[in-house]
Amino acid sequence: MKEKLESLKQEALEQIDQAQTADDLQSVRVSYLGKKGPITEVLRGMGKLPAEERPVVGELANKVRQVIAEAIDEKKAIIEEKAINEQLEKESIDVTLPARPVHVGGPHLLTRMISEIEDLFIGMGFEVREGPEVETDYYNFEALNLPKDHPARDMQDSFYITEELLMRTHTSPVQARTMNAYKGNKPVKMICPGKVYRRDTDDATHSHQFMQVEGLYVDKNVRMSDLKGVLNQFAKQFFGEEREIRLRPSFFPFTEPSVEMDISCKVCQGEGCSVCKKTGWIEILGGGMVHPRVLEMAGYDPEIYSGFAFGMGPERIAMLKYGIDDIRHFYTNDRRFLKQYHQA
């Protein structure tokens, strides 16, 4: 019995060794370890053996069975690995061939600019407010200290729909609306981005429709130096730490004092070049301390409350930042233009 088991083992191991495929191995497994295989047969025939030999032979048979099974598994792993390697060899590709493009779109440059501006002011505690693009004469002009006969209305030739309705010429009416909504007794800290319209002929530097982002902060004891501090923080974050800012007196009917803000020219580092018209400075935004009439009309007592407001044009800022030569690019939506600004 023992000899038979030994020779079965040898036989099986030899066949395993010669097996080339998973199928070969399977037939070895079936013929030696199956229910009708020789080892099972040996175990079945154990009843004929003397009682004292039975455990010895039984143990041996199980051991042989185990050795064969292990050998099959080992060989199987080898065959599988070989098959995988062959497969891999067949699958190898030229990794330098071009990629299959992933089809992704992207935002409009102006949306990017505005989101960036929004996020910077949100970080400084501002909320974002929106308002109608068709405005009443009252909110667009009168509430902003521009009564009907005001000479400064010359500055904004407007698209009127009726005598009382027009396409808003700036996003400032949103400020007036927000102050009204806050009923004169609560601080206002907001920016309002949006589309605005002027009666201009479209050319390289004019567009009858463009974007504006305006900001407003009204509270007790707001100082002009706060305006300077906030704008400085914005300018450094948006344009770069190394940029200097400068405020100049200016005039807007809705602010007093009024300012215009310049940043130092990046191209020439303030030395003067064609981009900055040889001044070393580039005009970025206008603003000032909210005019007391504007506060009054919105229900805020100018003796108690003060505030600052500012406004900027994302197109102008984008044109400066990226050297874009024609404002019409923003509204032509040429795919080749848009795609340039989908980059991170």
């Binding site: 089809h103 779109g105 409009h108 396409m167 589309k195 429709q209």
Partner: peptide, 10 residues
């Protein structure tokens, strides 16, 4: 896969 466009309101 779409690109944002901004067109005229008028």
């Amino acid at each position: 896969g779409l690109m944002e466009a901004i067109t005229y309101s008028l």
